[in-house]
């Protein structure tokens, strides 16, 4: 019960490790970037889920004195983090394009082979 009750942590952990696996194990630079995005997205989920308060509503003040609000701050934070994540992905993709232009490949082992020559 306790373990399943915190299911969003499981989602976080599984996404995180999936992303990390892709980053480490894949040789294709593009797949690495997908992994990296997944890795970051997992953290976004961690932040967003923790801001949820049981029975809480959106934090819009309606006049009711006993209203329970979810914490808005993590959502704001994660909005910034998402922007950062997108920039990183965009820059990463830009670099992959440049690598393709220069080396004619986006496979890590092939690039290393070319550089060694």
């Amino acid at each position: 019960m306790e373990l399943l009750g915190l299911y969003h942590y499981w989602v976080f952990a599984i996404l995180l490790m999936t992303g990390f696996y892709a980053v480490v194990a894949k040789l294709n630079l593009f797949k690495k970037l997908i992994g990296l995005s997944l890795f970051q997205a997992a953290v976004f989920l961690l932040y967003i889920t923790m801001s949820k308060v049981d029975g809480g509503t959106a934090p819009i003040f309606s006049g009711a004195a006993d209203a329970v609000f979810s914490n808005p701050l993590p959502q704001v934070l994660i909005l910034t983090a998402i922007v950062v994540g997108i920039s990183t992905t965009a820059l990463g993709l830009g670099i992959v394009v440049r690598i393709k232009e220069e080396y004619g490949s986006i496979e890590e082992d092939e690039i290393q082979e070319i550089d060694r020559r």
């Binding site: 980053v23 690495k32 990183t88 990463g92 670099i95 690598i99 220069e102």
Partner: peptide
């Protein structure tokens, strides 16, 4: 060669 290095750095 800066490109693969910077990709590694980025990751």
């Amino acid at each position: 060669r800066a490109l693969p290095s910077v990709f590694k750095y980025l990751i």
